[in-house]
Amino acid sequence: MDWQAFWLTIRLAMLVAVILVIVGLPIAYWIAYSRWRWKFLAEAVVALPIVLPPTVLGFYVLVALGSRSPLGRWWQAITGHTLAFTFTGLVIGSLIYSLPFAVQPFATAFSLVDSKLMAASATLGASKLQTFLRVVLPLSVPGLVTGVALSFAHTLGEFGVVLMVGGNIPGVTRTVSIDIYDRVQAFDYAAANQTALMLLSVSFAALCLVYGVNRKVWALWPWK
């Protein structure tokens, strides 16, 4: 089993999940509460990675990161190398790829919070930010756990985007799913099976966490 690939994949998935909390919360808040009439356009863009083939997504990310795009040139001017075929490039691709899996559960959880509670919070002197931190966020914990676990598990198993953006550089961009593909290509079914089983177990555990938390709203609260 290729432990290097395994830990690289875990590191990638965790990093993406953490960044998606930071980036996803404001986007989800805006999607849940904005009354902008063109909001559906933004919602559609966020949801695109769900329906798009990963190769299509990977292709455009590769183009965007490459030295012909403004972003790629800017990055090259600062760091001296391109984003494509690097771990950072992989993170950026994965962020886009997994964005809806974080934002959609967050936004759903926010919109399920009774608006009367937010009104009550405001009459008690709380600002919008305070209301968000003290009322909306605590009542959205199951949705937050779902979003984090899903984006983690989704990043864990990605293949197409990684192949397009990252290629197959051991220790840099070689993830578990690429490793499995390589082993199968080499007819090493035993090693492929080992790694596949590991990926299956971790993904299953993540989904168990999601459904376990959502089984009952307060199941994970320490005080119940």
């Binding site: 009774d114 009367k116 509670l117 009104a119 009550a120 405001a122 009459t123 008690l124 002197g125 709380a126 600002s127």
Partner: peptide
């Protein structure tokens, strides 16, 4: 939040 109004909602909230 700056009106200093006590409001008990229908359903209490």
């Amino acid at each position: 939040q700056r009106r200093r109004i006590g409001y008990v909602f229908q359903g209490l909230a």
